[in-house]
Write a protein that binds this DNA or RNA. Sequence first.
RNA 1: GGUAACGUGGCGGAAUGGUUACGCAGAGGAUUGCAAAUCCUUGUAUCCCGGUUCGAUUCCGGGCGUUACCUCCA
Length: 453
Amino acid sequence: MNRDIYLSNSLGGRKEKFKPINPKKVRMYVCGPTVYDDPHIGNARPLVVFDILFKILKCKFGNSSVVYVRNITDVDDKIIEGAKQKKILINKLTTDITKRFNEDCDYLNCEKPSFEPKATENIPLMIDMIKILIKKNNAYENNSHVYFDVSSFKDYGKLSNKNVDQLFAGARVEVSENKKRPEDFVLWKPSLKEEPGWDSPWGRGRPGWHIECSAMSKKYLGDTFDIHGGGRDLLFPHHENEIAQSRCANDNKSLSNFWIHNGFITVSNEKMSKSLGNIYKIKDFYKKYNGQVVRLALMSTHYKQAMDWSDDLLLQSQKTLDKWYEHQKKPEGKVLIPDEDLNPLYDDINTPGYISNIHKLYDKASKGSDKDKEIFTMACNFIGLLIEPKSKWLEFKKNILEISEEEILQKIKDRNKARDNKNYELADKIRNELLDKGVLIEDKDDKTTWKIK
RNA sequence: GGUAACGUGGCGGAAUGGUUACGCAGAGGAUUGCAAAUCCUUGUAUCCCGGUUCGAUUCCGGGCGUUACCUCCA
């Protein structure tokens, strides 16, 4: 496809034409999970958003020309805390949560990134980077801690539009005695005996909260790459600090040319938080909804917007997919999605606009030829929907039903007997009984079929 | 207090300097024993006040409101 991709760049705050440094190697880094607790629906949003961006980039530049890196942060104070609370070993917690994270990715039908590096497997790189920062006077050691000296980096605050003087004037930040200034942030800190630690020039310790992304993005994507993504909340301080570290260590003008941030998921218009108890874990949806339902729900709002999560949203998505599955037809041979239908995705990943186009393609498919059905299905497949066969979709629904298929068929027999005898009262009663159990009966021609409501 | 995003019909949610979003729900009709499904038809909207303009929901300014970030967080 010839048309250009446009993306909203947080750095600068406007929508820009996307131009990769090297079209034969488009590079994207997305901040992955810190594996300390089960992933929730808020974590799911960037997974799906950047999965779609990955697909768009591959469509534009070619499958083998896009490198997507998503890290796993498996060393962090929250992990230490979480393991303590659950009274399990740190290693057990991180492997368990990483496993669950991968299950969630499969459930949501997200493609595997090109690389999924773990922080703990790249500690030496972080130590090297910290060494460089100290050597260049961008960092200082004090009492086994190493801090980044924010005053040494002129562009600090440029990404998040923050003025350092104002930012820390009130000092709501905990000021450590070891820091020179409150805005400085930790690169390395000492570990207690029972805490995970690695030997370093500053003693046994562990890395700070931001350095892992700087080290791993450099390893896989180089000093400057094309896209860096993550949730809005990472904009400050995480991404600001990443930029400071990387640019000082690498001595260059840009870490990533594009910064993309997805909005939050709220519940009843409030941010999900543990204290409010309004967290929806992804695995909580496994039983009730096919992963595609959750995926479509996540795509129903533009990624930049906040989105309010509700049952109604899921039910609507379920209904839409039910309808769409009626005309699913696996493409045979090469089928192209018309450019004009693809347009919204190229314009800042406008998934709701694209979904609207799918509805139009559906209309055509429902009245048109097999080819139309194939185009429609292809359009769904592009954003990770309707890939699994209809039989599987129906099977999932059957499995969550509380009534067996035999019982249903028996009830239908009973009802049809009643109908033959013109005992419509009884027939309607049976139908309503089934409806209460979520089974909908349809009389078509001479045959009675059933489906899940 | 600082920084940002947002405010579109009953709901969800795009786009746009002048013309149908789209989906769900609703209404009417065809069909049906009644329904369901399907098909056809259909109503309803751009927070407030200024400015720019022939014309603004769209651009600019102000106000009000919502939310987020500034502290670990997708």
